[in-house]
């Protein structure tokens, strides 16, 4: 930057004679969150390697599990693929929620949130925006899982509308689970720790569930956990919506978990964010 350039074009208007102060527009949280969600999307677009977890993992897991365990667990790879795909989708989508806590934790270290916090926008907007922007990751998981599933021979046996409802339910669940990840991201010091803690949360949820095996094969003490496990209900809902398995109350249980996660963890995350120095 040369001194001459600085002198030449004056700042177009002096701050005191400022252009009319922007008038207050309605729904600041929604508008500002959307603007910040767009920021997340641009970031995702710029760093496609950050999408590896949600694109390659379902592919690898499906291939490995179907061909290794298929014969032993379900008596055939085709049957097991039908059984496993909704489970893998739920597992990957849940793990996809880890990234947001990690990313926000890194963002906080960089000071970009100081800028947001010094602006006259709702304090929660940067978090709500980041969580909303992550929808695109969950959509990619879903597409990626179905794409490889179809190549391997998976078929939806219900109707497209039910299938879409199943996918939306999974994405909704991931958005709600994100708040746990955001909360952890606000609480711990390093992004590595966020990853570690969230992995410890997601791991038992994915394995002590109906994702990989029918729950009837599990010991009875574990079945109690499995019956409460939100992933169990999500997977059962998807099996119902994709394959016509009995739905029971699983969709309601899943929705109840969604509400519960948001009601508990969103305020906690926002509070931790406000306190974060």
């Amino acid at each position: 930057m040369s001194t001459t350039t600085l002198d030449a074009p004056r700042r177009p208007s002096t701050p005191s004679a400022a252009a009319p102060r922007p008038t207050k527009r309605p729904f600041p949280l929604v508008r500002h969150s959307l603007a910040l969600a767009k920021r997340s999307l641009i970031k995702t677009w710029r760093t496609p390697e950050a999408l590896i977890d949600v694109t390659l993992q379902p592919i690898i897991f499906l291939v490995i599990f179907v061909y290794i365990f298929g014969g032993a667990v379900a008596g055939g790879t085709q049957e097991y693929l039908q059984f496993l795909l909704p489970g893998i989708l739920a597992q990957t989508i849940a793990q996809g929620a880890i990234a947001i806590g990690v990313n926000l934790n890194t963002d906080l270290e960089k000071g970009i949130f100081d800028r947001f916090r010094s602006l006259p926008i709702p304090r929660s907007a940067p978090l709500v925006g980041a969580v909303s922007g992550d929808v695109v990751r969950y959509v990619i998981v879903t597409i990626s899982t179905f794409a490889i599933g179809y190549v391997m021979g998976f078929r939806i046996t219900t109707d497209p509308l039910s299938a879409i409802a199943g996918c939306l339910l999974a994405i909704l669940f991931a958005l709600c689970l994100s708040w746990v990840s955001v909360f952890v991201g606000m609480k711990v010091r390093t992004s590595g720790a966020v990853q570690g803690i969230m992995f410890l949360v997601i791991m038992p949820l994915s394995f002590a569930s109906n994702v990989f095996v029918p729950t009837s094969s599990l010991p009875s003490w574990m079945q109690t956990f499995v019956a409460w496990n939100p992933l169990t209900h999500l997977v059962a809902s998807m099996r119902g919506l994709f394959l016509g398995a009995p739905l029971g109350n699983h969709v309601w249980w899943t929705l109840a978990w969604c509400v519960g996660l948001v009601v508990v963890f969103m305020p906690l995350a926002l509070r931790a964010y406000r306190k974060k120095v």
Partner: peptide, 15 residues
Amino acid sequence: TIGLTGQYASVDEDL
């Protein structure tokens, strides 16, 4: 009313 420029340049590096 204010503008803040922090000690650590707080710009979004990916943007």
